[in-house]
Amino acid sequence: MKKNMGNIDRGIRVIVAIIIAALYFTGTLTGTLGIVLLVLAAVFVLTSFVSFCPLYTIFGLSTCPVDKTKG
């Protein structure tokens, strides 16, 4: 897997995941919507740790900075 996520993108995903988890565990988000968003938060954390987002590959996106020293 080639990294396609930059540090800012990873940080934003982790912050959003923390907010969603806090809302779920405080009872603000409940029911099916709460569970779906909690799963989405888990996906955000996982993709942040591996610096790879499969959807970015499908759409040809990358927020990872280009390394100009290689090549």
Rank of each mutant, 00 (worst) to 15 (best):
M1E: 12
M1F: 07
K2Y: 14
K3H: 06
N4R: 02
N4Y: 00
N4G: 02
N4E: 03
M5S: 11
G6R: 02
G6Y: 01
I8Y: 10
I8W: 12
D9A: 14
R10I: 15
R10P: 11
G11T: 13
G11D: 14
G11E: 15
I12F: 00
R13W: 00
V14L: 09
I15V: 10
I15G: 00
I15F: 04
V16N: 01
V16L: 07
V16R: 01
A17N: 06
A17S: 13
A17H: 05
A17Y: 07
I19E: 05
I19T: 10
I20S: 05
I20Y: 07
A22Q: 02
A22T: 10
L23P: 00
L23A: 12
Y24N: 14
Y24R: 15
T26W: 06
G27L: 06
G27V: 03
G27F: 05
G27H: 08
L29K: 04
L29T: 07
L29Q: 11
L29W: 04
T30Q: 15
G31A: 01
G31V: 01
T32G: 05
T32V: 06
L33S: 06
L33K: 08
G34W: 04
G34Q: 11
I35S: 13
I35H: 14
I35W: 15
V36H: 03
L37V: 09
L37T: 10
L38S: 13
L38D: 04
V39T: 07
V39L: 08
L40W: 05
L40A: 15
L40Y: 09
A42Y: 09
A42P: 00
V43A: 04
V43I: 11
F44T: 04
F44S: 04
F44G: 02
L46E: 07
S48H: 06
F49D: 03
F49Y: 04
V50S: 07
V50M: 09
S51Q: 11
S51P: 00
F52C: 09
F52K: 03
F52G: 04
F52A: 05
C53H: 04
C53D: 11
P54D: 01
Y56Q: 12
Y56F: 11
Y56D: 15
T57L: 14
I58V: 14
F59Y: 10
G60W: 08
G60F: 07
L61F: 12
L61S: 00
S62I: 09
S62P: 12
S62Q: 10
S62D: 14
C64H: 15
C64L: 15
P65S: 13
V66G: 03
V66N: 08
V66K: 15
V66I: 12
D67H: 08
D67S: 11
D67M: 09
K68I: 14
K68C: 11
T69V: 12
T69F: 10
G71C: 13
G71P: 01
G71L: 15
